[in-house]
Simulated scan of single mutants.
Amino acid sequence: MERSLTHIALFAALIAILGFVPSVQLSFGVPVSAQSLAIMLCGTVLGARRGMLAVLLLLALVAAGLPLLAGGRGGLGVFTSPTSGYIVGFVLGAYTTGWLVERTTLPLGVAATAAALIGGVGVVTFCGIIGMSVTLGKTLAEATYLSAAFLPGDILKAVLAGLITVSLARMRPASVLSRA
Rank of each mutant, 00 (worst) to 15 (best):
V55M: 12
M1Q: 05
V45I: 14
G47L: 06
L5C: 00
M52V: 09
L69I: 06
A116F: 10
I39P: 04
R170E: 09
Q25T: 05
L151T: 13
K138E: 12
G65F: 07
H7F: 07
L37C: 03
C42V: 07
G119R: 05
I39W: 05
R170F: 06
D154A: 10
G75K: 03
T104S: 15
I118E: 10
G43C: 11
R170D: 09
I39H: 05
P152N: 12
G43T: 10
V91E: 00
G51S: 02
L66C: 00
S27C: 07
L108K: 12
L68D: 03
G153K: 02
S84V: 08
G131T: 00
V101P: 11
M40N: 13
S147D: 15
R49Q: 09
T113E: 07
L151G: 07
G19W: 01
L100D: 05
V110H: 08
A94Q: 08
V62I: 07
R3P: 00
A12L: 01
A60H: 06
G131H: 01
Y95M: 10
G75T: 01
L140A: 14
T125L: 14
V166S: 13
A48D: 11
V88A: 15
S147T: 14
G74Y: 02
P31I: 05
A54S: 15
V88K: 03
A161T: 07
A13K: 08
A141C: 10
G19R: 03
I8H: 06
L59Y: 04
A114F: 13
I164H: 14
I17V: 14
L5W: 08
R170C: 04
P107R: 15
G120K: 06
G47V: 07
S178Y: 07
S133Y: 11
V88E: 01
T139D: 11
G71T: 04
G153N: 04
V91D: 01
L61S: 04
V123L: 05
V176K: 14
E2T: 06
I129V: 15
F28E: 04
A64V: 04
S81W: 02
S36Q: 14
L58H: 06
H7L: 11
A116M: 08
H7K: 08
S167R: 15
L151F: 14
M52E: 11
S178W: 08
L106R: 15
G128S: 03
I8D: 03
G122T: 00
A141Y: 13
F79I: 02
A94W: 07
F11A: 05
P67R: 04
A60N: 00
I8G: 06
I164M: 12
F11D: 03
E2I: 05
L46M: 06
T104V: 13
A174Y: 08
I17R: 03
F126Q: 07
G19H: 01
T80N: 07
T144N: 15
I129R: 12
W99D: 05
A60W: 04
G93A: 10
V78R: 03
L10P: 01
L92V: 06
T125A: 15
G51D: 01
I164S: 12
V55N: 08
G162P: 12
R49V: 10
S33W: 02
S4K: 12
V121G: 11
V176T: 12
A13Y: 03
V91W: 01
V88W: 06
P173R: 13
T113W: 09
L66E: 01
T97F: 10
S27R: 13
M132W: 13
F90M: 12
A143N: 14
